[in-house]
C-alpha cells in the first residue's frame, strides 16, 4: 500500500505523527500511528472495527478522562508510546440464553 508521506523528509514525518498504544481490558495491545493534528476518531473507528465491534462500543480513556472523537493528540499532549485504554461496559448476567461479550461478534449496521 502506498504511503503518500514517503516523499517527505523522515524527520518531518516523525514530527507529524505520534505512536499510540491502545490497550484493552484484557491486556491486548495495538499500536497506532496517528497524525498529531488529526482527530482521534479514526483511530477509535479502526480499533472498534478490528475488534469487530460497533463504533462506540469502547470508551477510550487517556489520563483518566474519556477521549472525544474530535480531540487530537496535540490537544491532549500525547507522546510516543502513550497508552489509551479501551474499556467496555459489561452487562453481566449469566443466563444460558444470553450471549456474553468475550465471544460475541457484533453487527456492523450501525457504523
Amino acid at each position: 500500500m502506498s504511503n503518500p508521506q514517503d516523499d517527505k523528509p523522515i524527520d518531518q514525518e516523525q514530527e507529524a505523527h505520534v505512536i499510540l498504544k491502545v490497550k484493552s481490558q484484557d491486556g491486548d495491545e495495538v499500536l497506532f500511528k496517528n497524525k498529531k493534528s488529526a482527530p482521534l476518531k479514526k483511530l477509535m473507528y479502526v480499533y472498534c472495527d478490528r475488534r469487530g465491534l460497533k463504533l462506540d462500543a469502547f470508551a477510550f480513556i487517556f489520563n483518566g478522562a474519556r477521549i472525544g472523537g474530535l480531540e487530537t493528540p496535540d490537544e491532549l499532549d500525547m507522546e510516543d508510546g502513550d497508552v489509551i485504554d479501551a474499556c467496555r461496559a459489561m452487562s453481566g448476567g449469566l443466563r444460558a440464553n444470553q450471549r456474553q461479550w468475550s465471544y460475541m461478534l457484533f453487527d456492523h449496521n450501525g457504523l
Binding site: V30, K33, K35, A38, V46
Partner: peptide, 11 residues
C-alpha cells in the same frame, strides 16, 4: 488521507 495508520496489529 493518512491521518492515521495502524502500525502493528497482533490480532
Amino acid at each position: 488521507d493518512d491521518d492515521i495508520m495502524e502500525v502493528e496489529n497482533p490480532m
